[in-house]
Design a binder for these strands. Structure first.
Lengths: 209, 209, 209, 209
DNA sequence: TATGAATGAGCTTTCATTCAT
DNA sequence: AATGAATGAAAGCTCATTCAT
């Protein structure tokens, strides 16, 4: 929406700058391990000074959270779109889309680990994170339902979410971009997970591919 | 075995001191996030100076690896014992034992992540790690077989391993000991994972508990 | 030149601060043996924190090199000026000026030794060092030529350079400022060296092998 | 001489052990830069514990001095033998022998620099060092005399000694053994130095200022 | 608001030296 | 006399954060 006052304009600009920082950080996190991304590097990559970042975020954790939340929104959009398509094979597609995203955004689950495990979020931050998680789990739950499962769907969604994250922590190799080989392995595992979370009406040994 | 010479005795004592350091480190890792455990803290907790640690380990990575490998041996023992019992429900038991262990040893999968992803192990260290991993996967594979699955068992073992690790990264809360609540949640998820990895001969909606 | 913009001013100030650190370091090196000069001591002497030094130099070696190069430029200026004067006795004056400088800058040849021998300079640093050395040797060579020698002048310049450095390693006393006595001794030796490098009458070019 | 009492025997053994340590250290110093030789490495190379070294030397400096003095005695022997031969070209041979020795014993002049410059020797140590130096200078002086020089011979010996040492600090490259190239360069410079210290025909005693 | 120099606590690591056995 | 584990001071270096401009 167009700014109506100078005040609005200023506010919009400020917001844009903040977004720019977060976006740059996100790119860095996508390509580097979490612990290799420093304030200095983010500042440099954004083309601002380190001090500037502190004008927008009160500490590095806050910036990390914003990056993480944006990653969350992105993956939610992606998974959401995947579910809009043909319902047959939806679960498998969802799993592959999710794991593929993790491959492209290497620090995502490291940050996840950090935020979920750290337990030091403020009262304002926590709900945002929770909201994100809930939406993602909604989508996983829907995928599970589409695949024919009707019981324990919420818990299954949690389990699915965990399982897919685990693929990355267990098999992704650093540093740099994932090799084609490791990406393929993670996708194959995602497929296995998907199959196991599908309802298999009368699964007979040898029938699953 | 009892020492036969002074030399033996000294060597045993030395080994014992080394173990003490590793054990202390393991305790710290169990209670703290990986990156918060420093040489200084390990030294202090062990009651020695930082320099002493370098008399036993040539660098911090070597100590970390020893701790990690010991954790690995432990979990292999535990899972192995679990498989010796009644074959019915073995997979489920294995999953719970594994997740329970991760709950008690919080840094284990962070270290796993580090060592798997870092790719900076020496030529001597890597095989030890690989050997550990292979044994653990053997056990998971056996559990899967016992549960009735006969196809893709190796890949399924990988997927299972990933999935269980993922539970922790996704749901374990830091810092300190896991709350009873979070432990229960992770165990419930382990259960779900186990069910999904079981062969369900003619699984009918509503039939899975 | 006067700064034209704020940017210029800031840049100049930064440069000045950097110079201040280097200058302080140079003073420390003048009075102390090379290996006793640490980042912390330089920082303290400059009145800044150790971290600050790393804002200006990426590591200690870089600072050392800057100090060393500046020393080199200084000695080149001094020797150059000496050569501008009366050609009679120029070689002797050059030798005394050089040795006197080494007396006032005790670590200079220790650093020389370090940089020459270490062989760990980057591709950017090495040429600077080489350029410095070449200019100094050019001056020594000129002095030798002025003194009447016409053969092997480059090699003789190397030998002269070595010989004068050797005076310091062999006779300068640590710690602290050189005593008047030791300074006099080194100057006397410089004189001897100079005499021996002068052409003495009937020596005919080509006769020395 | 054969031990006459148990006491003698014990004392001889003790002396032998001490020598062994010093000899091993000397080998290490010959092959490594001074600052890379640690007590631990000497102990390990000797096959004793670090503590043992402190039973023979009250600190590392004392050991260094012993090594240095032994090196001195060696070089004195070598130079002395060189002087026993044909008097023609003796100075040149002496210079080459000395520089060659420095090439084979890389740390020698680093230690020289240390001891001469440190000025922290005890009242017992200093005379030993001085005695060594005096003998070496005696030999250099004799070589200069043989070469025809008759004035200022003591001072010239000092200058020659300095000059030859300077070759090494100025041109020897670390690490490891000297390359054939660098050795040749240092020998060529030694030759130049020698030539310049020789009396050249028509030079008349008293004429050089 | 943006800057970026300065900070300082904290890191891993080295090594001469001590001392109980 | 020999041991070698333990020490602890000191090194170089990193980095989130602060604050005067």
């Amino acid at each position: 929406m167009a700014p109506k006052t100078f005040e609005d304009l200023r506010s919009q600009e400020r917001e844009a700058r903040k977004k720019l920082i977060a976006e740059t950080a996100r790119n860095l996190f996508a390509r580097n391990a979490f612990r290799e991304v420093t304030i200095r590097k983010i500042a440099q990559a954004t083309g601002v000074s380190a001090g500037t970042i502190y004008n927008h975020y009160s500490n590095i954790e806050e910036l990390f959270l914003e990056v993480f939340l944006e990653n969350g929104r992105q993956i939610i959009r992606l998974v959401g779109k995947t579910l809009e398509g043909d319902s047959s094979g939806a679960l498998s597609r969802v799993c592959r889309v999710y794991v593929n995203y993790l491959n492209e955004n290497r620090s995502f689950f490291q940050m996840m680990s950090r935020f979920i495990q750290a337990g030091e979020l403020t009262a304002e931050e926590l709900p945002k994170l929770d909201q994100n998680m809930r939406e993602l789990l909604d989508l996983f739950e829907e995928a599970i339902r589409i695949a024919g499962n009707r019981t324990n769907t919420r818990l299954s969604a949690h389990a699915l979410f965990s399982a897919l994250n685990g693929i990355m922590i267990s098999y992704a190799k650093y540093p740099g971009r994932p090799t084609e080989e490791s990406r393929e392995h993670t996708l194959r595992l995602a497929e296995i997970i998907a199959e196991n979370f599908e309802l298999r009406e009368s699964r007979v040994p040898g029938q699953n591919k």
